[in-house]
Design a protein around this nucleic acid. Structure first.
Lengths: 241, 241
DNA sequence: GTTTATTTGTTCGTATGTATT
DNA sequence: AAATACATACGAACAAATAAA
């Protein structure tokens, strides 16, 4: 029995140190990192721990590596506009004010078969629709329509919906993952007004279904993003095998 | 040199077997998998090997897991339309005919500073622009403008460009990864004609920069996708920490 | 062109800590 | 509190890919 582990995992510490060295310019883009053996010696840990740290940084798109060659620093994205995900996080990160307005909240009188199927619910079970608008610096950014079953909203009021929906849901059922699909469409009059964009402007429409760990669908969400304010960013890696 | 091991890595075999069991319905969505100990015993390997197999399947969005609970089968995306990446692969997978037309190929007389900066080239160095149109079942799907330095095109002819550009490039320099940024825009007259869509239609515009493992930029690419034919799909995972 | 050194990849065994039920 | 299941970590060894001698 060594020290009681109250600290972060060692492989995370190693990963952080490596990342900081990249930030500090000690390991530069295009430069090869020291070998796993050397890093293990330097950090006084096993090579497997170094490998876990490196793997974590690869998953974070910070490093790339090749068998027999070594590990390399990935070239950084020169981030321009914000990515699609994480509305309130973006606001916080940029020190901007964000607001969420509840446009409507009601029990659907005639839910479509599609929604029942997506949420894996019996027909006739009540489904609620929540429409919210999110603003950044008082400018409308996105409108989202969220469909959920009664069990998640039974004891909630409109006031609750002005905060993070995920936090609310997770008091009842832990969220594991979401599937998303993104389309580009033209804005319709109703949305044009809500988002304050001209008729004929392009929008992103994002359908997402969120699941619990046992694959139970929790909510179905159709969100509209102003294409003049949002872009997607992502990284594709070769040698994925 | 006598060959000893010609087989796949054991953790890959285990991963394949688990995936096949999911496909075969032996492990069903919402069902918990056997514990890592049990799987290790069954596959006659160490627990670490099972963990590596499970990790690989998590990265493939096939499984999800939680400390103390277990591993679960992720609900599958009901894939409708094709994703954005992999044009010829999609065509092949769906048994459809695909074609690539070279619209133009020329040395730029006045490359912009932006392109020089993205490709990390000295000003005055020649840059080539390749414009291609890709069709699926004789229907135009996407138009791409590709910018590369002379070294990648010096010994190539137009005929070469009708195939896979990545394969061509990789004869000179191995591709490691790409950064992408996706916008939604309105089609312009010139593109409307090439893509055979009405004026005012929405398009995806994808900027991507492709790098070698040492972070050397290899090519810069601006592609336009018909929004009525393409959607993005992706999966977000919670508990990413 | 073959050999050798370096570097990453795979795998085992073992032990202990942490989370969930 | 106890049992179960995943998480972290070490040491050791050999395989395979790459690059240099």
């Amino acid at each position: 029995m060594e020290t009681k582990k109250n600290t972060k995992a060692k492989f995370e510490q190693v990963a952080e140190e490596i990342e900081q060295r990249i930030q500090a310019g000690i390991y530069v883009s295009a430069q090869k990192l020291p070998s796993e053996y050397d890093l293990a010696k330097e950090f006084d840990c096993s090579r497997l721990t170094v490998r876990k740290a490196i793997d974590a940084l690869i998953q974070k798109n910070v490093l790339v590596k090749r068998p027999g060659k070594g590990s390399y620093v990935m070239s950084k994205i020169q981030s321009g506009r914000a990515g699609l995900q994480g509305f309130s996080e973006v606001a916080k990160a940029q020190g901007k004010t964000s607001k969420t307005e509840v446009i409507s909240f009601k029990k659907l009188t005639e839910p479509s078969e599609k929604i029942y199927s997506i949420l894996a619910l019996e027909t006739k079970q009540p489904i609620y629709e929540l429409v919210r608008r999110r603003l950044l610096e008082d400018e409308p950014m996105t409108v989202e329509k969220i469909y959920l079953s009664e069990m998640y909203v039974a004891d909630l009021s409109i006031k609750d919906f002005e905060g993070s929906l995920f936090d609310l849901i997770e008091r009842k059922n832990e969220i594991a993952y979401s599937h998303q699909e993104v389309e580009a469409i033209l804005v319709e009059p109703e949305l044009a007004e809500l988002l304050k964009v001209p008729i004929g402007s392009p929008l992103f429409r994002v359908h997402s279904v969120t699941y619990a760990i046992d694959a139970t669908p929790i909510l179905y969400d159709v969100s509209y993003y102003r294409a003049d304010r949002y872009t997607f960013k992502n990284t594709l890696t070769r040698y994925a095998h």
